[in-house]
């Protein structure tokens, strides 16, 4: 908090102190360019993290929620077996709800293949029971064993479980996205430190004169820190804008197909890139401050 307050105070600025340090084109361009490029990359790392996070959440939601029980039995036993299966399911820990699909619902499911007028009732179509799980779900092996004993025609289909490795992969990608952002922040800090050191070395004479007239280290440091923080903020703002535009111009989810659904920002997530310039400014602030105070200590 204290850091943040100082950062804001600094950005508010003291134009007179700023003028004491002459502008140096080379380090200015270096800082602008590197923070801009890094912000551009950070937008993608952020988009990756958020999109994979979303994917992982959705997939694990779905997989936690539903399975299907399919009952194939001669028509006269169908109702009895369905009832028996529901009794079994309702007494199984981890099952929140079990419900036999109605004929209408089954017809709807089959409609894409057979058209809307299929006489489901007269066909030997298996009865489907939708099982909604809660918490960590049920023990599939145990449930199968019980069903085999009590409802011979039942087949438990927990097909959504094939997505488990995908969820893990998505989570791993999300982590990679975060690690990338940390690396980007670190690299930005390193580059700004180098640029700040170059600026401090180039201005040794200015520092000497300011010392002679009674400037404290923190005052001299601030003049440099303000410059670099502002440049990093501006560079990162431009880089973030460019990166966000690039994400915006990605092919839309529908066109790209279901699997890449929304490798961009959605809803409130569009606000997240705003964090990047602020973060860049903070990194520049800390890096330049350390560099300046260290150099000033060495030069005395």
């Amino acid at each position: 908090m204290d850091m943040l307050r100082r950062l804001l105070e600094l950005l508010a600025g003291d134009p007179q102190a700023d003028r004491a340090v002459p502008p140096t084109g080379f380090t200015a361009r270096l800082t602008l360019l590197s923070s801009g490029a890094m912000a551009f990359l950070a937008v993608f790392a952020l988009a990756l993290s958020l999109a994979t996070g979303r994917l992982a959440d959705r997939w694990s939601d779905e997989l936690a929620k539903t399975s299907t029980l399919r009952i194939s039995a001669p028509a006269d036993q169908m109702q009895a077996q369905t009832d028996a299966a529901i009794v079994v399911l309702e007494s199984t820990p981890g099952v929140a709800q079990a419900r036999a699909l109605s004929a209408d619902e089954q017809r709807e499911l089959l409609a894409p293949w057979f058209g809307p007028d299929l006489p489901v009732e007269t066909l030997p179509v298996p009865q489907l029971i939708e099982v909604i799980e809660d918490g960590d779900g049920f023990d599939a092996t145990g449930l199968r064993a019980r069903l085999q004993a009590e409802v011979p025609g039942a087949i438990l289909d927990d097909h959504t479980r094939w997505r488990e490795p995908l969820v893990e992969a998505a989570n791993r990608l999300r982590l990679l996205g975060f690690v990338s952002m940390l690396l980007i922040a670190g690299a930005t800090g390193a580059m700004i430190t180098l640029a700040a050191n170059a600026a401090l070395a180039a201005n040794a004479q200015v520092i000497r004169v300011m010392r002679l007239v009674g400037a404290r280290d923190i005052y001299i440091a601030r003049a440099f820190v303000r410059r670099f923080t502002q440049r990093a903020l501006i560079g990162a703002a431009v880089g973030t804008l460019a990166g966000t535009l690039a994400v915006l111009l990605l092919p839309s989810a529908d066109a790209a197909g279901g699997f890449l659904t929304g490798l961009g920002f959605q809803g409130a997530h569009w606000l997240w890139p705003l964090v990047i310039p602020a973060l860049a400014a903070l990194v520049a602030f800390i890096a330049t401050r350390q560099a300046a105070l260290r150099t000033l200590k060495e030069q005395s």
């Binding site: 004491a20 002459p22 004169v209 007239v213 009674g214």
Partner: peptide, 20 residues
């Protein structure tokens, strides 16, 4: 007589006030 060569004379003279 060392000065900040990029600042006008008046600002150089006022520098002790500025840094204080």
């Amino acid at each position: 007589c060392q000065f900040l060569d990029h600042l006008p004379v008046a600002e150089n003279i006022a520098l002790p006030l500025t840094v204080a």
